[in-house]
Design a binder for these strands. Structure first.
Length: 203
DNA sequence: AGCACGATTAACT
DNA sequence: GTTAATCGTGCTC
């Protein structure tokens, strides 16, 4: 299968977030493919639009910090950050250099390497392996060492493939999850995308 | 140096 | 529905 090229990611985060649905996130783990269909995403910053829910806009008056600098870099790279003292979040950088655009991958449907996911999500049922951003990072063994990796490089251990067919007919849209004290209008703008009816969607 | 809080999850009542 | 876990980050003093 074809891995997505940098041109796919060099657009506004909302376009990328919507079109990533149904694509395959592939992680090479111990030389084996561990993968899942992307069924839920969220856009953070769209081109030049301000977004006070986005790390890149919120910190340091919208200028890069050690944590956020990858978001300001070239599209098609991984932005992986640590939160709540225990969880890793996997994002894809979109847009142009200088814009802090990213898409958070919030949920997958397991496809390949399921026994490895089961091992990484010990004693949990299959439906709870990848139905949340920190859960899928754990299932695919994604951590901070993935921050800044190029998803469009042939040698990377992680990438995204177009597998063509998407059985779900409807893309659902709604407000992003877990934004806490983010002010309006960003708290409510519908920048979350998911495949309607898919049982691996987080909420 | 100290502090509040987080793009969450799991385990409670 | 409520809350503990757990620590890096960025802001304030």
């Amino acid at each position: 299968m074809e891995r997505l090229e940098v041109t796919f990611f060099a657009r506004g985060a909302n376009s990328v977030a919507a079109e990533l649905l149904g694509k395959l996130l592939v992680r090479l783990l111990d030389g084996k493919r561990v993968s899942g269909r992307i069924v839920e995403t969220e856009a953070y910053c769209d081109a030049d639009e301000p977004d006070l829910a986005c790390h890149g806009d919120r910190a340091n008056n919208g200028l890069p910090t050690p944590r956020t600098e990858v978001m300001f870099g070239p599209p098609g790279h991984a932005y992986v950050y640590f939160t709540y003292g225990m969880h890793w979040m996997f994002n894809v950088v979109t847009g142009e250099v200088g814009q802090a655009n990213a898409v958070l991958i919030r949920a997958l449907e397991p496809v390949e390497g399921e026994h490895m996911m089961a091992n990484n999500r010990l004693n949990r049922p299959r439906e709870l392996w990848t139905n949340g951003p920190a859960k899928l990072a754990q299932a695919l063994a994604i951590n901070g060492s993935f921050n800044g990796l190029n998803l469009c490089n042939d040698r990377s251990l992680i990438w995204i493939e177009d597998i063509g067919h998407t059985p779900e007919r409807t893309i659902a849209i709604g407000p992003r999850i877990g934004l806490g004290k983010t002010p309006e209008p960003w708290l409510s703008i519908p920048w979350r995308y998911w495949l309607e009816g898919n049982k691996f969607v987080s909420i």
